[in-house]
Design a protein around this nucleic acid. Structure first.
Length: 423
RNA sequence: GGAGAGGUGGCAGAGCGGUUGAAUGCGGCGGUCUUGAAAACCGUUGUCCGUGCAAGCGGACCGGGGGUUCGAAUCCCCCCCUCUCCGCCA
């Protein structure tokens, strides 16, 4: 959520930058300022009335104490009218504040200057690529067929137990999952991220804190009986560790990592390209989350990008990094780099990581602040990235490394899997 | 699931209708003393909003929401959460 003072002080910049999201936000921004003007005027008037009532109440108390009941009664009559007036003013103030908040919740984050203009993923800007696309020869198998051939992922069994999008991993497939999770966690902790295990269910306040609510309500599984949500990503619980927290400047950088399963309803997004592991309702992901000083957050973003690069290089997967264009950028993000691995049998790029700087957008909702040297409070910057999401990494590993003998496991992973070949 | 207790400032813990934003202790910060430190002593120490160049002034906040009252941390109602005991249980 953007803050009103920020919009007020940077109106032109905000307006221009938001236009990259292919919508004219100027009317909403103007309305924000109008509502805020109204809010402030009402607040001033309400406070004046309340001050008057407080003063009278004190006088009444004094009169009762000194036995001057008659004078007290006279004043009481006076307060009745004031009370009516302040009540209706307070109600109007509340309505104005609600309307303002409602409006602010609909305005997305301001894209960073480097975000390219564009409508969809085709307009994303490739900023880096690495590795050679493998030559697989005749009739390479897509990963869902390889999974069946080696009996390592059972989609039908998942259908039976739960439904589509909930695969069962078996044997070397299950072991590969565990290996990847441990490999990622080890690399992340070696890079200074604190390993954590957050809950997999979150409450409403946490959903609002990171921006899943209210805009993505339908994307999360909701347990109505207890009003809890299954996490769509570890970003939600981990970032919410810092909700309502005031850090000290010297606490920076705050670096956390967590492995969690992720649950997404993916309502209405099923189609031709979602076979196999490409899109699931439940999948595993290791996440990195950082809280940073505003002056350091873009350097931190670069560090995270470098870190994720290292992971994919260790896995010997050809990949590219794209900078998301305005039309593809998430609601809460100021700048996002997506990592896409080459899936050799599908002949497609598959997104395996999304690394973003949210600047103060989440921190404002989270009330996540820090004290500077002069003891002044400022909103912190939040960042996160996948390091990494498993299913599409597995898809690419299976497809790219298929040989006549079996599926070759990259060297870096072998000490984790305990085998070099899936056969 | 059953029964009970409780949610107050960074923490501990008073207050239970009227200068109480809140005693006291601990912690934090500043100072005196000291070669330095500790101890001791003195002072200071919440958040948000409005207003103001500023000093300041005003308002709100004692889990959340509503109510009673001229006046609520204190009384009433609803909700949430935590703890203890019993039951069940990885």
């Amino acid at each position: 959520m953007l803050s009103v003072p920020f919009i007020r002080e940077n109106f032109e910049r905000v307006k221009t930058a938001l236009a990259k999201r292919n919508k004219d936000f100027e009317p909403m921004l103007r309305q924000v300022l109008e509502l805020d003007d109204k809010r402030r005027a009402l607040k001033t008037e309400t406070d004046r009335l309340l001050a008057e009532m407080n003063r009278l109440s004190k006088e009444i108390g004094q009169f009762y104490k000194s036995g001057e009941a008659k004078k007290a009664e006279t004043l009481k009559a006076k307060t009745a009218a004031l009370k009516e007036q302040s009540k209706s003013l307070a109600a109007e103030l509340q309505n104005t504040e609600d309307a303002l908040r409602e409006l602010l919740l609909q305005i997305p984050n301001v894209p960073h200057p480097s975000v390219p203009a564009g409508r969809n993923e085709e307009d994303n800007e490739t900023v880096f690529s690495w590795g050679e696309k493998p030559e697989l020869g005749e009739n390479p198998l897509p990963h869902w067929e390889l999974a069946k051939k080696y009996d390592i992922i059972d989609f039908e069994l998942g259908n039976k137990i739960t439904g589509a999008g909930f695969p069962v991993y078996k044997g070397k497939g299950a072991r590969l999952q565990r290996a990847l999770i441990n490999f990622f966690l080890d690399r992340n902790t070696a890079a200074g991220y604190l390993e954590t295990q957050p809950p997999h269910l979150i409450n409403e306040a946490s959903g609002y804190g990171t921006g899943q609510l209210p805009d993505k309500e339908g994307q999360m599984y909701h347990i109505e009986k207890d009003n809890l949500y299954l996490i769509p990503t570890a970003e939600v619980p981990v970032t919410n560790f810092y909700r309502d927290v005031i850090l000290d400047e010297k606490d920076f950088p705050v670096k956390n990592t967590a492995y969690t399963p992720c649950f997404r309803r993916e309502a209405g997004s099923w189609g031709a390209h979602v076979r196999g592991l490409n899109r699931l309702h439940q999948f595993d992901k290791v996440e990195i989350v950082r809280i940073e000083h505003p002056e350091r957050s873009y350097a931190a973003l670069d560090e995270m990008v470098e870190h994720v690069k290292g992971l994919l290089q260790a896995l010997e997967l050809p990949f590219r990094i794209v900078r998301l264009c305005g039309g593809d950028l998430g609601f809460t993000s100021a700048l996002t780099y997506d990592f896409e691995v080459w899936s050799a049998a599908q002949k497609r790029w598959l997104e395996v990581s999304s690394v973003s700087n949210f600047e103060t957008f989440q921190a404002n909702r989270l009330k996540l602040r820090f004290r500077d040297k002069d003891n002044r409070k400022h909103l912190a910057h939040t960042l996160n990235g996948s390091a990494l999401a498993l299913p599409r990494v597995v898809a690419a590993l299976l497809e790219n490394n298929q040989t006549a003998e079996g599926i070759r496991i990259p060297e870096a992973l072998q000490s984790y899997t305990g085998f070099a070949l899936i056969d």
